[in-house]
Nucleic acid binder design. Structure first.
Length: 462
RNA sequence: GGCCACGUGGCGGAGUGGUUACGCAGCGGACUGCAAAUCCGUGUACAUCGGUUCGAACCCGGUCGUGGCCUCCA
């Protein structure tokens, strides 16, 4: 089977045909760096990381370019810096560092390119100039504004007409706009705000609007037309609609990207969208303090990326237990397994991760029966998806943040318990087990198949 | 108000015209001094009403319900 992807632009699943198979190019909208990312951002990271891996698998690791930007100029960043009384640079540097740690812990490969908005101000200004020169933008009240009526098929991505949007508009229209839907490419900076020399003959200093940075960065690093553009579904409108309007009008192209992909939302327990503005979110860092990154990743991939994903503690626990089983069986398998065709087929079917995970379960079942090829294949297949990245030992010794265990004492007590058991002093052995349980230690007895001896392992109770 | 998704067994979640998804939980069994862990086995389903069809969870229409976008958001 060949790769099929659902395209928001056409609202259909389509066979993926790269523009250049030796350089498949994808762009995903990364975070605005003003605070810890939440697990909804994490979903986007994991989904497009998986797509990156699938493309690398299909076209070769050296033939895929993945650009994921960092937006480091934005009103929310300014507000955060003012709130904390620190420089804007300090906020963006710190948040970027936290973001990189979160992404790495969710087992996301680094993107090929990670452009920053502040490094592309000249490109943004050049886009403003071009758009004004072509009649797609105009200057008013020291702003550069995109002229929506200048683009006949504006609204194609989000599947709505300008008339509909104007009818449902809930925002006041700035008086200097020629048309209500026109949006800002460049705006004047007030004192204390980041400021650059303005384009288009504007005298005062200014700063970019929200969408222009992605147009500039995508164009510079991936070209005027590239293969895949992705992000969360809430970016369809207005962000992606406006971004592609700018890029297409500036470059005179029929599309900006051939395929547009959008992941669905996480739902908080109440069944509503999890979002920063509603405040009903947990951060990736809070999650990863309590659970290993791979378990978070598996939970995020447990439903199809376009479906809403109800986020529950139970889901996270279940994901971790599933990984326990995969690790036990396959982490130490040999490295010469092959990725199961069922897994590839499922992933190439618009990233059908639930089906791919089902295929992994099937491999696990085979492996549990002693099929060593299945073990190796489970390992290879899981690794393709970003699982089983560490050793069994590392997996088992993962500890929640802030939990300190006196391992020497635990081992001493376990030895004492085994001695008591050998004497058939079950009262004493159960007492020790209870003592450990009170400390949050869960014991597991297993009979060594070769020696017949009982061996006891332990873990922190979940 | 406009536009758009979705409604599958106790829970999560694929599928999509005729055949077991799968996982977790539950239940039964093996193992164990007893537990836990592990292994084996196993029941339960397609919101509702109507239509198309030899046959519909799957296609079409109505109804009800849930959610999203139209404003910063992944």
């Amino acid at each position: 089977m060949s790769l099929q992807l659902y395209n928001t632009l056409t609202r259909k699943k389509e066979r993926f045909e790269p523009i250049d198979p030796t350089n498949v190019r994808m762009y995903a909208c990364g975070p605005t760096v003003y605070s810890y990312i939440h697990i909804g951002n994490g979903r986007m990271l994991v989904v497009f990381d998986l797509l990156f891996r699938v493309l690398r698998n299909a076209y070769g690791a050296g033939h895929v370019t993945y650009a994921r930007n960092i937006t480091d100029v934005d009103d929310k960043i300014n507000a955060r810096a003012a709130e904390e009384g620190v420089s804007i640079a300090k906020v963006t540097e710190r948040t970027t560092r936290q973001f990189h740690a979160d992404a790495a812990d969710l087992v996301c490969l680094p993107p090929t390119i990670e452009p920053r908005a502040t490094g592309h101000i000249d490109e943004m200004k050049a886009l403003c100039e071009t758009l004004v020169a072509k009649g797609h933008a105009y200057v008013a009240a020291d702003h550069v504004l995109f002229s929506v009526p200048s683009m006949p098929d504006y609204g194609r991505l989000s599947n709505r007409s300008v008339e509909e949007m104007e009818a449902g508009a809930r925002v006041d229209v700035a008086p200097y706009k020629r048309s209500p839907m026109d949006f800002v490419l460049w705006k004047p900076s007030k004192s204390g705000e980041p400021a650059w020399a303005s384009p288009c003959g504007i005298v005062g200093a200014g700063r970019p609007g929200w969408h222009i940075e992605c147009s500039a960065m995508a164009g510079k690093h991936l070209g005027n037309v590239f293969d895949i553009h992705g992000g969360g579904i809430d970016l369809v409108f207005p962000h992606h609609e406006n971004e592609l309007a700018q890029s297409r009008c500036a470059h005179g192209t029929h599309v900006m990207a051939n395929v547009w992909m959008h992941n669905g939302f996480l739902e908080a327990e109440a069944g509503e969208k999890m979002s920063k503005s509603l405040g009903n979110f947990i951060t990736v860092r809070e999650l990863l303090d309590q659970t290993p990154g791979e378990a978070g990743r598996l939970a995020l991939l447990s439903s199809h990326y376009r479906q809403p994903l109800p986020w529950t503690e139970r889901l996270v626990q279940e994901s971790r237990r599933t990984l326990d089983l995969w690790y036990e069986l396959a982490a130490d398998a040999d490295d010469h397994g092959e990725v199961a065709p069922d897994v590839i087929d499922a992933l190439e079917d618009d990233l059908n991760t639930p089906r791919a995970i089902g295929a992994l379960h099937a491999l696990r079942g085979e492996a549990a029966k002693g099929n060593s090829a299945a073990r190796a294949n489970l390992k290879a297949s899981a690794r393709l998806m970003g699982f089983l990245q560490s050793s069994l030992e590392e997996w088992k010794t993962w500890r929640p943040a802030g939990v300190a265990i006196d391992e020497v004492m635990v081992d001493t007590l376990i030895t004492a318990r085994l001695d008591a058991r050998k004497r058939k002093d079950f009262k004493e052995s159960d007492r020790i087990r209870d003592e450990l349980a009170a400390m949050g230690i869960q014991l597991k007895d297993a009979k060594n198949k070769e020696t017949g001896e009982i061996e006891t392992s332990w873990e922190v109770k979940r």
